[in-house]
Nucleic acid binder design. Structure first.
Lengths: 135, 135
DNA sequence: CATACTGTAATAAAATATATTACAAATATA
DNA sequence: TATATTTGTAATATATTTTATTACAGTATG
């Protein structure tokens, strides 16, 4: 999973924000996203590894936020679920003897780093609570 | 093609910038990128549709820039090759009866639009000439 | 008129993303 | 304590998207 990771995680987290006192099951969450529950659990595993949610196994188990939605920024979620914003790389190794081929990926990477910084600044200003309040 | 479109186009355009007086063949360009020439020609078709390069068919044919590299910004190239910066959407239609499911895509889209604006501002300040001068 | 290109369609192969199945381990509660 | 429900995770299958290849008509050059 790569394409939907951020979107799925933020969907999960928005639901958890809306029901801050309940342990929501992966099946319930999967129903809202329309996604297989196993994939929801995988994303939750990632969020757990970053300590922003906690789960309870067994009957009546599920997942809840482990910190306040007002203390979670979208930048944190971005960092947890996205490698870096980028506009892509060509898939194959470019020709190493060509002056352009030799440096293209390095130069693209520098550009993308610059873009990421701008995106991060923006996302730091939005909390999960802010985002959830739109619903 | 989505993932490599911008990277491939900027690679092509950097080569054309380095050889502003020559018509470069798709095969030559493909060698530098290490990509199938047919895909290079497809990207060139897109750049031609946006009038920043021109091609000559037949023997000794190829492609060259149709305007100065100093008059092309990376934002233009971005617009030509990328739909929008985004952090993804879940693939399936979310549940329409869930308050979160019902609005998630709209709200993500609003967020992504905001990010795109920041990225565009950044890319407007870099010309193809600037980028090519790094090589 | 032979050669070397572009343009483009059709198809194939490879890579990635998503879905499904299966089941062990945990825990609430009847 | 037995049953039902849920997480956690591995293994596998399916679907989708990207990339590559093949093929060939059209065009300009020398």
């Amino acid at each position: 999973m790569l394409s939907g990771k951020f979107a799925i995680s933020i969907h999960i987290l928005t639901l958890l924000t809306k029901f801050p006192n309940d342990f929501l099951s992966s099946e319930f969450i999967a129903g809202s996203i329309n996604l297989n529950p196993v994939l929801v659990r995988k994303e939750i595993a990632n969020l757990k590894a970053h300590h922003i949610v906690e789960s309870k196994e067994g009957k009546n188990g599920g997942t809840k936020l482990s910190k306040s939605a007002s203390d979670i920024t979208l930048n944190e979620i971005f960092q947890m679920t996205f490698d870096t914003i980028n506009l892509g790389y060509a898939k194959n190794h470019p020709h190493p003897d060509c002056p352009v081929g030799k440096k293209i990926n390095e130069n693209l990477s520098g550009l993308y780093t610059q873009l990421n910084k701008k995106v991060s600044v923006e996302l730091k200003n939005i909390t999960l609570e802010d985002f959830s309040n739109q619903f």
